[in-house]
Design a protein around this nucleic acid. Structure first.
Lengths: 248, 248
DNA sequence: CCGCCTCTGTTGGATACCGCACAGAGCCGA
DNA sequence: TCGGCTCTGTGCGGTATCCAACAGAGGCGG
């Protein structure tokens, strides 16, 4: 089973772009304390209001940040993969946030205690600058997601979501049912089926019982609204891979 | 005219909660460099992508952070008043953001050069901790706004918007037409008229040609969705007024 | 091989909001 | 005082999405 296989894949901390961008000096201090943890789909990392005393650097999994409403629906506000870190509230000083973090795509992450992260952050070195810029990228993603949910069709949102997910996974088929995607986009399952079916007819994706495969990335980008590109461009700008991030 | 009057009101930097929360030591370094600037409605502080080389601490004005779409609509993702600061991209390290900042309610702010703010931020003292926590509060507001736009009726959104605005202004009538409110919520003007009319019939607000007055705050909160309270509670938690903010 | 469960496809009616068009009402300046 | 502009009120048809119900299709275990 595909899921099981990916659970046993060997990963290294440096598959995470943030960790990879840090200088050796920081690696020496942090790597010994990073522990690899399996991230099965559905694993709840934080609930809204929980103290976030650990942070996670994904390598080959995807984590969704969800906000709940009183009506018991929840909406994915941003996603975090190997480009980022889950648990920004730790160094932002709030300790907790009003979102929940849940694993959306099975894989692995490296876990670090909040205390160690804060200590390193407070050295005001490479990690500090990097995490701040990452936080800004996250904010951009959140805002653009908000705009997208409001203005664009389910089909466009689906394209955006697929592209964001593909960027964060080493490779194809996404193991997601229409039902799960609908939870993420917070639309009806039927809406996702309809949009998927349309994309399939256009020859852009194919899917079968919980596996979605992109057939043509370029066409996916064409059919998508601008939201994907806005987020991608801004993230690339903010997190341009540098061995030694430029200080403010 | 109400607008003109408020333009000549005398303000002090300490009307801004962030500035007020800083210890004397920081005041001594920063206050000499803060200059009071009038903030007339419609003033554009940054455009998307602009280098934010100045930050603004509002005292009695409200600034909206707007994200535009390609279809030339724009949506208010968060609002900043005397509880915050406009220009977080400066210390987050991105220098620019993908939003625009525009004055929504006439008043004043204190302006500081980005360089001086960064210098103070990089001292890693009170301002540093305060601004990080403020940023997190801003993120919470953005996320909740996103959720609200998606799930709640125009009437509920209007209540939320009114409450957030009232919190940030010394006092009553908000000088806003339905048209302007509709731009903020990114709905039709008629939708705002309809919702306003309903709130009026319920005796909760009254309005007349560009002036909106809340008659009963408690009732406004009842009619609102949970979004206002979530944001308010979390902001209060993160920014609990302390003479010397607690370090991480 | 069969039954069951999950996943996908489809339909019909309801609804919130949109776009447009226009009418009345208050205010300001000529 | 009167014309014109801004602001608010209202009605009509269109549409994307929602809600509910159900039908077929594929896979897995007994």
């Amino acid at each position: 089973m595909q899921t099981e296989a990916s659970m046993t894949t060997v990963t290294t901390p440096l598959q995470n772009h943030l960790l990879a961008a840090l200088p050796d000096e920081v690696h020496e201090r942090l790597l010994p304390y990073l522990s690899s943890v399996p991230m099965p789909r559905g694993k709840l990392l934080y609930e809204a209001g929980d103290a976030e005393n650990r942070v996670y650097f994904p390598t080959d999994c995807i984590v969704s940040l969800l906000y709940e409403t009183e009506e018991d629906t929840s909406e994915e506000i941003s996603i975090v993969g190997n480009e980022g870190v889950v648990g920004v509230a730790v160094f932002m000083g709030g300790e907790s946030a009003t979102s929940q973090a849940i694993v959306q795509s099975t894989g692995h992450a490296y876990r670090l205690s909040g205390k160690l992260l804060k200590d390193e952050f407070n050295r005001h070195g490479a990690l500090f600058y990097l995490l701040l810029r990452y936080s800004q990228a996250l904010v951009t993603q959140m805002a653009q997601t908000a705009v997208c949910n409001r203005h664009h069709t389910i089909e466009q949102q689906l394209c955006r979501w697929l592209l964001l997910s593909l960027d964060r996974l080493a490779s194809a088929p996404l193991a997601m049912t229409h039902e799960l995607v609908s939870n993420m986009l917070d639309v009806r399952r039927e809406g996702v089926t309809e949009a998927s079916s349309k994309l399939h007819k256009l020859g852009v994706i194919e899917y079968n019982r919980g596996l979605i495969t992109a057939l043509s990335r370029p066409r996916l980008e064409e059919l998508c609204c601008e939201c994907y590109t806005v987020v991608k461009t801004e993230s690339d700008r903010l997190l341009a891979y540098t061995e030694h991030p430029i200080p403010i």
